[in-house]
Amino acid sequence: MITTYIGIGSNIEPEKHVKAAIDELKLLGSITQISTVYEAEPVGFLSNNFFNLVAELEVTCSLSELAARLRAIELKWGRLPDAQKNQDRTLDLDILLYGDVISNNDPKLPREDLFKFAFAILPLVELNPDLIVPGTKTTISEIWNHFTHNQSLKPALINLRS
């Protein structure tokens, strides 16, 4: 089993799509933890706020298979095949970490979001603050403690159990 951390985001019917993402991830492996769902302002464009969270998932599939399956889930739930960066999303599923894999290919790991965006860092701190980010000697909580908090995050009022 490989422990992977998946970033989940949506700003189009976000409650519906976040719940759908959790249900779909359960079909890929065993979800061991889910962070708080945070409401976050979009970064780089003006639009509706996003719901963001991170799920810790135990999987047996390869990295390439996981990436393909996450892409298929995004498309199933209405993401446009040619979606651009800084655009509204029904569902965005990003592999933040996949075990201790470091990759410069697609998907790049560890994902750069772990060093750039509060919506990726804070939920991971919540799940595993002492996790050392592969390729660094730094824990995720150390990254958070040195991070310039330039994005407003607040817990979203969403019940993932229903």
Rank of each mutant, 00 (worst) to 15 (best):
T3N: 01
Y5K: 02
I6Y: 14
I6V: 14
S10R: 05
S10L: 00
E13C: 03
E15H: 04
E15L: 10
H17I: 12
H17R: 05
K19R: 09
K19W: 11
A20E: 08
A20Y: 12
A21W: 14
A21H: 09
I22G: 01
I22T: 10
I22L: 08
E24A: 15
K26Y: 14
L27V: 10
G29Y: 04
G29P: 07
T32E: 13
T32V: 15
Q33T: 06
I34P: 00
I34V: 14
T36M: 07
E39S: 14
E39F: 03
A40H: 00
E41G: 03
E41C: 02
P42T: 12
V43D: 11
V43W: 02
G44H: 10
F45W: 14
F45Q: 13
F50D: 15
F51H: 13
F51V: 07
L53E: 05
L53H: 09
A55C: 15
E56K: 08
L57Y: 11
V59R: 06
V59A: 12
C61D: 01
L63W: 10
L66H: 01
A67D: 07
A67N: 06
A68K: 01
R69M: 04
R69S: 12
I73G: 03
E74W: 03
E74S: 04
L75K: 08
G78Y: 07
R79P: 12
L80W: 07
D82E: 14
D82C: 11
D82Y: 10
K85R: 15
K85V: 15
N86A: 13
N86D: 13
N86E: 11
D88F: 00
D88R: 00
T90V: 02
T90H: 08
D94R: 05
I95H: 03
L96K: 04
L96D: 01
Y98T: 00
Y98F: 15
Y98S: 05
D100Y: 00
D100L: 09
I102T: 05
N104V: 11
N105L: 14
D106Y: 09
P107H: 00
P107W: 00
L109D: 06
P110V: 11
P110K: 00
R111K: 11
E112Q: 12
E112G: 03
D113C: 01
D113N: 03
D113L: 11
D113R: 08
K116L: 15
F117T: 04
A118E: 03
F119Y: 13
I121V: 10
I121W: 08
I121C: 01
L122T: 03
L122V: 14
L122I: 04
L122A: 05
P123R: 05
P123I: 06
P123F: 10
L124D: 04
E126H: 06
E126G: 10
L127H: 02
N128M: 04
I132Y: 00
V133M: 05
G135L: 00
K137H: 12
T138A: 10
T138I: 14
T139A: 08
T139K: 12
I140A: 01
I140H: 00
W144C: 13
N145A: 13
F147Q: 09
T148F: 10
N150H: 07
N150A: 11
Q151F: 11
S152W: 06
L157Q: 08
N159K: 01
S162W: 13
